[in-house]
Amino acid sequence: MLNWFKSKKKNYPDFWLEYLNHFKSKKRTIIKETRFVAFDTETTGFDRKEDRILSIGAVSITKKTIQVNQSLELYIEQDIFKPETVKIHGILKHGSLEKISEIEAIKKFLAYIKDSDLVAHHAGFDKNMVNEMLLRHNLGKLKNKFIDTGHLYNKSKHIIYRENLKEHYSLDDLCEELNVPKTDRHTATGDALITAIIFLKILSRLDKRKNLEWDYLLK
């Protein structure tokens, strides 16, 4: 039994091992200098077992700067296709976009995120979708720390306003609240960029307390 587990672990492909390797030497740097990856997925629906990821968009943030040429934009070939969701994400089954296989997408995504802290809006959903995809290819779960912008926004509000806060903030709500233009909503990369900017804005509000600590951010 123990052997079986061991042998499976040995069968992990190189790219996964390489991904895991990043975490062995991970050290915490100061928040300002840390690389964050904001990402978003477009899916065929909300069921983590049944639905599939059609597109992943990601941007990285270092020192409050997003480099456009360092962004990630993946479109994934899927057999499952739900016409009713096309109106949201706009990705056609046989559109003109250049698509890659799921395993290729995983390789690219992992190579991109490395050990960075991931930022997503309602991070739980995206995390589950990605993990499910990894599982389908017999890989482990993501090891990265997650930061949820919805949750973080709540924390950024002063205690006296907390009771007026909504239970659930959509990305659109935050765009309104934080005055972020809603260009390219519902494309993975567009939402990733919006999430990144929202993250930076919330961070600066939290940073007003100056000694923002990792514990607080990741909690």
Partner: peptide, 12 residues
């Protein structure tokens, strides 16, 4: 590879 952000930046 498609870069939607670059397109939006260019639009601006």
């Amino acid at each position: 590879m498609k870069n939607s952000i670059a397109e939006r930046v260019a639009d601006f």
